[in-house]
Nucleic acid binder design. Structure first.
Lengths: 239, 239
DNA sequence: CGTCGTGTTGACATCTCTCAACGTACGTGG
DNA sequence: CCACGTACGTTGAGAGATGTCAACACGACG
């Protein structure tokens, strides 16, 4: 639902009725993808951007030796290739993880917004700055955190973002990832991710089974991850 | 010089005379910092953004166990905390590496630009998208590249960006970093960085001595790094 | 009923880290 | 001018975290 985006923005700043209407009217249609489909290919020229309505998406880069690095996970409410509006193509790939529905927003519409809606433009710009802040935490994870802290931090991030999107029931959330996905996101092997998940489970911190994460000891999880949600800028300010 | 920013933007899109004049008039003053000084502290409220005129700056996050992760390096022409305009504070720190001069642009001026200069706004937004693309490459490096490839990729990135900024003489550039800085950027120890630099030197690929990088075999360096400059979006397009 | 994708576990390998020692350059104070 | 401390770089030896390889379990699905 596009209402997920409105909620996400409204949490960070006031949105007036006119701005809500402009956003509601932005999509020119929707599109569906099955699981594990390419959505945007590296280098492909783009003329529209996608707002994720349902399902999970990831960005990734493949290396020459077959290794893959996932760069970010996206959930409903995320404007998944808004960058493409100004970059004109992406230097990485985007793929569905689960079955996915997106709303298509033509770049001409985005251009119109940037010409006529300065406040809305700032809010859209802002959402891309949050993506960059998430990237920075992943740099820290992959660079300096231990394997168990990387997994824990990713789970804390997803927990917090899914809660903002209204997709968490408080202590558990649906997460259609494989252990290999988590490995490619955290720069580990799926075998080692499996071991770290077992440690977290054995220690009563969290479980990840059948596509569902259940957090059984949130303070312990945040402590292992050294998680501080400040980087998600969840408070409202005039922007 | 603010002309570095104009060049950086003009390489990605046309800038008209009026827009150049607006940018030239944006700074309300300049400020200098000695080497290794804090420039912006995590969480500090911001009311102006800084355009780097001279010297090198880094963003970083410190972890509880004393480890540090550098998130990005900045060079003259970079609008180093433009994000602060919309984020209102940063979740990481910024520090000078060398002596530094910055131009100060009040957020009120940036707000005026976003209200009245849609094209210039898109270009400023664009520069923050480049930062995010750089972040993504660092995620890949720290997550999936070997130690030698991480060092090589960082050097390729700096070489390319410094060339765009007019701060490279073609095969060598001034780089006032310590091996510990490179270690904190690449998620390695300074001892291992030292070993990797020795390998690159012994193999005739590049040297880093006395604050100067000299690339002696560029194809070999790019090959080790698997470096593709596409992520820096160096071509001009209407944006 | 076989195959494939995914998860699980153990044994061993290896890359990078840790610890330690030492060299050099430079500034500072006696 | 010399003595000393500090920052940075260099090298070696051993340790440890994570990767690699291999085997097997299980369910989904054609």
């Amino acid at each position: 639902m596009i209402v997920n985006l409105l909620n996400k923005l409204a949490r960070r700043d006031m949105l007036d009725e006119h701005e809500r209407a402009v956003l509601m009217a932005a999509p020119a249609g929707t599109k569906q993808f099955g699981p594990r489909r390419n959505i945007v290919r590296q280098g492909e020229p783009l003329t529209q951007s996608m707002l994720l309505l349902d399902g999970f998406v990831c960005r990734y880069i493949d290396l020459a030796d077959g290794k893959r690095q996932i760069l970010e996970f996206h959930m409903p409410g995320d404007f998944i290739d808004l960058q493409g509006f100004l970059l004109k193509s992406l230097e990485h790939n985007m793929a569905s993880v689960s079955p996915v529905t997106v709303a298509l927003v033509p770049h001409t519409t985005l251009r119109h917004i940037t010409e006529n809606e300065p406040h809305l433009t700032r809010l859209l710009w802002f959402t891309t700055l949050i993506d960059a802040a998430i990237h920075r935490q992943w740099i820290v994870s992959n660079g300096r955190r231990s394997a168990i802290a990387r997994v824990a931090h990713l789970m804390c991030e997803l927990d917090t973002r899914l809660d903002v999107a209204g997709l968490s029931d408080g202590n558990s959330f649906f997460l259609p990832f494989t252990q290999a996905d988590i490995a490619d996101a955290t720069g580990l092997t799926s075998i080692h991710v499996n071991r770290m998940l077992r440690v977290l489970r054995d220690d009563g911190v969290m479980t990840f089974r059948d596509g569902r994460v259940t957090i059984t000891n949130r303070p312990a999880l945040a402590d292992i991850a050294e998680f501080d949600p400040a980087y998600l800028y969840l408070h409202s300010e005039p922007r």
